[in-house]
Computed example of a mutant assay.
Amino acid sequence: MTDPTTGRCALYDEPTTSGATDNPNSARNAPLNNPAANLGYIYFHSDFNYLEVAFGPTAVVVSHGAVAASSPPAGATVSFGWTGTVTDRLLFTHSLGYVPKVLAIVGNNTVWPGMPVQTGGGATRFVSIYATTAEVRMVEFVSTGPGTLPAVDLTYTLLVLADPPAATGNILFDFDPVTGIVEMGRRKFKSDRRYLQVVPGGSPFGISFGGKSIDLQNGAMRAFRPDGTYFEPVPAGLQLGLAQYDLYGAYYGISYGASMGYSGSYAGPGTLQVQAP
């Protein structure tokens, strides 16, 4: 149904048989002009953001430089720290004039803020991807360890999503048999645009819903991927050990603490795997 007053167009099941069929504001047509309260009945609504793809998927290769090992202080044999610097680099120029939503994957994993993308020598490389009104950028920082973190080239694949367009004109629903293009809701939706498609098992890109995608317990994290699997950067068997010596330097062994890994049971949010058409 359409409503010339509000400019809306929607496809839905009627939640009740009460009211006139041709009245956009009757109870049976409530999904049209009160979509938020009738989500379970709606198949399409011109007010909704169907996540139009503005650019991508675009693969960007980033050459991450090597990071030297930490220098332990006097009296210590091993030290951990961080480089003290943050690298901020350009990944992609979109020039949309506003800050868009961006999806990114690396190694078939969705990139979340502060995601570890490389470990080695006791060090870890973390990245966050963000957008400005003109660019998609990456922030990188590294925790250091007793060994060198080698240089690595990693491929980040980006999807830049456009904001929903403003309503224009007076067309509530139109089909052009020559072009095959469908327009709905005063051109807020057009079938010749590229919208994200739900493809279970078919894409590493994903959107989480119904809850948080990262849980913290015991000082460690569990991060969920769109395919339902999860990633725990702190191994369950990681323990801190304290070597014991007597006053004469005789070694008595190592006393280990409890596991430093994630200790919770969070099962993750709902997820949708998506791809660009």
Score class of each variant (00 low, 15 high):
224 F>H: 03
222 R>D: 01
247 L>H: 14
255 S>M: 10
212 K>D: 12
191 S>A: 04
250 A>K: 15
213 S>C: 09
258 A>E: 06
247 L>K: 14
197 Q>P: 05
239 Q>W: 03
237 G>K: 14
257 G>H: 11
239 Q>R: 10
200 P>R: 01
260 M>K: 02
244 Q>I: 15
205 F>T: 03
259 S>W: 01
212 K>E: 12
198 V>G: 02
214 I>M: 09
200 P>I: 04
214 I>S: 11
213 S>E: 03
220 A>C: 06
238 L>V: 07
250 A>H: 15
251 Y>Q: 12
262 Y>F: 08
215 D>Y: 12
248 Y>W: 13
232 E>I: 07
191 S>Y: 06
220 A>M: 07
252 Y>V: 06
219 G>A: 12
244 Q>T: 14
259 S>E: 11
258 A>V: 08
200 P>E: 02
245 Y>S: 09
192 D>R: 07
228 G>P: 00
195 Y>Q: 02
194 R>I: 10
240 L>G: 12
218 N>Y: 04
202 G>F: 05
235 P>L: 04
247 L>Y: 13
238 L>R: 05
262 Y>K: 00
203 S>R: 04
252 Y>W: 13
206 G>R: 01
235 P>F: 07
207 I>K: 00
214 I>Q: 11
262 Y>G: 00
240 L>K: 11
236 A>G: 09
240 L>M: 14
198 V>T: 13
257 G>T: 10
259 S>K: 02
213 S>H: 03
259 S>I: 04
219 G>K: 08
247 L>V: 14
227 D>P: 00
256 Y>I: 06
255 S>I: 14
196 L>H: 01
195 Y>S: 02
223 A>N: 05
246 D>F: 08
199 V>K: 06
193 R>Y: 09
194 R>A: 08
234 V>H: 01
222 R>N: 11
191 S>E: 00
235 P>I: 05
212 K>H: 14
252 Y>I: 02
256 Y>K: 13
231 F>G: 06
201 G>A: 06
232 E>H: 03
199 V>E: 10
211 G>R: 04
219 G>R: 10
239 Q>I: 05
234 V>R: 03
236 A>H: 11
250 A>R: 15
245 Y>A: 10
248 Y>C: 12
194 R>Y: 12
258 A>Q: 07
238 L>Y: 08
238 L>C: 07
221 M>W: 09
254 I>R: 14
246 D>G: 11
198 V>S: 09
199 V>D: 08
238 L>E: 10
240 L>H: 10
262 Y>N: 00
220 A>N: 06
211 G>W: 05
197 Q>A: 13
255 S>F: 13
234 V>E: 02
216 L>M: 12
238 L>Q: 08
220 A>V: 06
193 R>C: 07
242 L>C: 14
198 V>N: 13
220 A>F: 02
